[in-house]
Amino acid sequence: MKIDLTGKTALVTGSTEGIGFAIAAGLAGAGAEIIVNGRKDDKTAKAVAKLKAQFPDASIRGVATDLESAKGCDTLVKAVPHVDVLVNNVGIFGPQDFFETPDSDWQKFMDVNVMSGVRLSRAYLPGMEKKGWGRVLFLSSESGLNIPADMIHYGVTKTAYLSLSRGLAKRMAGTGVTVNAILPGPTLSEGVIAMLADDVKKTGKPVEDVASEFVMAARPTSIIQRAATVEEVANLVVYVASPLSSATTGAALRVDGGVVDSIA
């Protein structure tokens, strides 16, 4: 099985680090032209340079804009009028008690985690339909099914992506465009590494071991009993973004290490 995305343009939002960067790298390795997106010019430029060093023959460029606002999304669409693959990855998270989460925080999470995907999908799907081929992927989370009590606002946004992806898949029926959601579980991204830094320092254990202990404490239903790597998540995304996944649409595809305790 060979995944070939030669001639396809892929936009990965929030791709300067973590899962987004790994997805961009995976798509570049499959031959796609890559659009990297981040909020800041310098960080976006560094991510582009890092990818070009890994894939010197690939076409890679960056567009720095904050997708929290409609204006930021418009800036991206104007810079990149058409894509074949849209990966709605950008997102924010953080524990916060429900009773201490004001409207402003709810609105920010909705704007970044949901409305960015709504706006970009609305902008790019018509072009995909016209070409008769396209892939839209939404990075949801196992937290969209297992709503965390300490991050209810985050879980709600990830559940929203499940509804949005399923509805859009139906809306694009018969067009050659597929729409799917990806549900990662605990993943060893830069954000998680930073969160575990104090425990790593205190215990002297490798971050992978500390992450495994965290997973088993916070997500005891994990079957792999460790955090996934960003590359493991990216591998699924690259497949779903490829022509090989043409019969997969409207799906919620889990790469959660078995955290969600369900046979379906």
Results as ranks from 00 to 15, higher is better:
Ala47Arg: 02
Ser59Cys: 13
Val85Pro: 10
Arg61Gly: 09
Gly167Asn: 11
Thr16Ser: 00
Met115Leu: 13
Glu100Asn: 13
Val136Asn: 06
Thr249Ala: 00
Ala24Val: 03
Thr65Asn: 09
Asp256His: 03
Ala10Ile: 05
Phe55Gly: 02
Ala149Glu: 15
Val12Trp: 10
Val207Arg: 10
Ala247Cys: 08
Glu231Gln: 13
Thr178Ile: 04
Leu188His: 01
Ser104Arg: 10
Pro126Ile: 02
Leu27Asn: 02
Ala53Ile: 00
Ile224Asn: 09
Val230Ala: 14
Val83Tyr: 11
Gly38Val: 01
Ala217Cys: 07
Gly144His: 07
Ile193Lys: 15
Met195Asp: 12
Leu11Thr: 05
Asp4Ser: 07
Lys8Asn: 07
Gly155Asn: 14
Val90Pro: 03
Lys205Arg: 01
Glu68Ile: 08
Ile23Glu: 00
Ala22Gln: 06
Thr9Phe: 11
Thr65Asp: 07
Phe214Trp: 14
Lys158Gly: 01
Asp111Pro: 07
Ile152Phe: 13
Asn88Gln: 08
Ile23Cys: 07
Gly127His: 13
Arg39Thr: 05
Asp42Arg: 14
Glu190Met: 11
Phe98Arg: 12
Gly26Pro: 06
Gly155His: 15
Ser59Val: 15
Ala45Lys: 13
Glu100Leu: 05
Val112Tyr: 01
Pro102Ile: 02
Asp150Glu: 15
Gly174Thr: 05
Asp74Cys: 00
Thr159Phe: 14
Asp41Tyr: 11
Val238Trp: 09
Leu76His: 04
Asp150Gln: 15
Lys108Ala: 02
Ala58Leu: 07
Ser116Gly: 00
Gly117Ser: 01
Gly204Phe: 11
Arg171Met: 10
Gln107Asp: 15
Gly72Tyr: 02
Asp261Glu: 12
Lys130Leu: 02
Gln96Glu: 14
Trp133Asp: 10
Ala227Tyr: 04
Asp209Ala: 11
Thr157Lys: 14
Ser165Thr: 09
Ile34Ala: 01
Ala181Gly: 04
Ala234Gly: 04
Gly127Asn: 06
Gln225Leu: 00
Val255Asp: 06
Lys8Leu: 12
Ala211Arg: 04
Thr101Gly: 05
Arg61Ile: 03
Ala228Glu: 11
Lys8Trp: 00
Ile224Pro: 05
Val83Cys: 12
Leu162His: 12
Gly91Glu: 00
Thr221Gln: 13
Gly155Leu: 13
Ser189Thr: 14
Tyr154Trp: 12
Val215Gly: 08
Ile92Asn: 09
Ser59Asp: 15
Ala181Asp: 00
Gly62Glu: 09
Lys71Thr: 09
Ile3Lys: 03
Leu196Lys: 03
Met172Asp: 03
Ala28Lys: 11
Val192Asn: 09
Trp106Pro: 08
Asp4Arg: 08
Ile19Glu: 06
Gly31Thr: 08
Ala24His: 10
Gly127Trp: 11
Ala47Cys: 08
Gly117Val: 04
Ala28Gln: 07
Glu33Ala: 15
Ala228Lys: 08
Gly134Val: 09
Ala234Tyr: 07
Gly250Asn: 00
Glu142Cys: 13
Ala227Phe: 00
Ala32Thr: 06
Asp74Ser: 10
Leu162Val: 09
Arg171Gln: 14
Glu213Val: 04
Arg61Tyr: 11
Ile263Val: 14
Ile224Phe: 11
Lys43Gln: 13
Val259Asp: 03
Ala160Pro: 13
